[in-house]
Amino acid sequence: MKIKEIIVVEGKDDTTAIKRAVDADTIETNGSSIGDEVIEQVKLAKKTRGVIIFTDPDFPGEKIRKTISEKVPGCKHAFLPKAEARPKNGKGIGVEHASIESIRTALNSVKEEMEEFISDITLDDLLDAGLIGGTHARERREKLGVLLKIGYTNGKQLHKRLQMFQISREDYIQAVTKILQEERN
């Protein structure tokens, strides 16, 4: 499987894992404090071939994703569920621990960032579904991120990410319904 876009990852081990799964080029951020040189590489990559941001499903990975999105708007995003980013020994989390199949699935499910979309999913909808402010909100957001392939977010960022990736009300309702049904069973 050949990927046209350049994939932004955190480090060398992530590049190795990506190259085991697909034929692709990468840019490594080498940590969460992203220098101007890396941002310039990402800008050039976006202009010439497109960019997929594929960072670890943890706080530093989300920080990198947010920083790049702010400085280089309009990137595509690939998300890996936390459960698929853990090694067999359970220590650590990252793209480098994912199976070839998990990496391919994430890259086949990229989401494109859109700036001009206004979602009809409201904050009240998120509250009603128990995605913010409830006792099971974090777990529900994690499940929603997996089902919609938008990754995990905190309560404040969920509404923004639903808009950014143009998640339809229908897809949102189907995912929330599935999560709530699983909880009842």
Rank of each mutant, 00 (worst) to 15 (best):
A137L: 08
I53V: 10
S102A: 15
P57N: 05
K76N: 06
R138S: 13
F79W: 11
K46L: 03
E84V: 00
V8M: 01
K63S: 09
G31Q: 14
T177K: 10
K91T: 08
D128M: 04
E40T: 04
L127Q: 11
K2T: 11
Q166F: 08
G145Q: 02
A175L: 10
T29R: 03
E40K: 14
A137K: 06
F59Q: 15
A85V: 01
E113P: 05
I167H: 05
V9Q: 02
F165T: 05
E113Q: 15
F54S: 01
K143L: 13
D128Y: 03
L107P: 06
I121Q: 04
P57S: 08
V8S: 00
E115Y: 09
E113F: 06
Q163V: 07
N89H: 00
R49W: 00
T16K: 14
E5I: 06
I132V: 15
V9N: 03
L126Y: 02
A24Y: 02
H159R: 14
V95D: 04
T177S: 14
G134C: 08
V95K: 03
L148P: 03
R161M: 13
G74Q: 03
G133T: 07
E84H: 00
G151Y: 04
I27F: 12
G94H: 06
D56P: 06
K149Q: 06
I173K: 15
H159F: 06
L107M: 11
T29E: 09
K66Y: 09
R161T: 13
E112W: 03
P73L: 12
A106M: 10
V8P: 00
G133H: 09
A24N: 03
A98T: 07
S119P: 07
D36P: 01
R169V: 13
S32M: 10
G133N: 11
P87F: 03
A106H: 09
R169N: 15
A98S: 15
R169W: 10
I27H: 07
S119G: 06
V22Q: 09
K46H: 05
K46P: 00
S119I: 04
I3L: 04
A106C: 12
T26D: 05
E40S: 11
K76V: 01
R141K: 12
L147K: 06
A45L: 02
I121W: 09
M164H: 05
A45H: 01
I167Y: 02
I34R: 03
I53N: 00
I53D: 00
A106L: 04
T67F: 02
R161D: 07
D58R: 09
E70K: 14
I173P: 08
A85F: 00
Q157Y: 06
N89F: 00
E40N: 15
I103F: 12
I34Y: 06
T153A: 12
S119M: 02
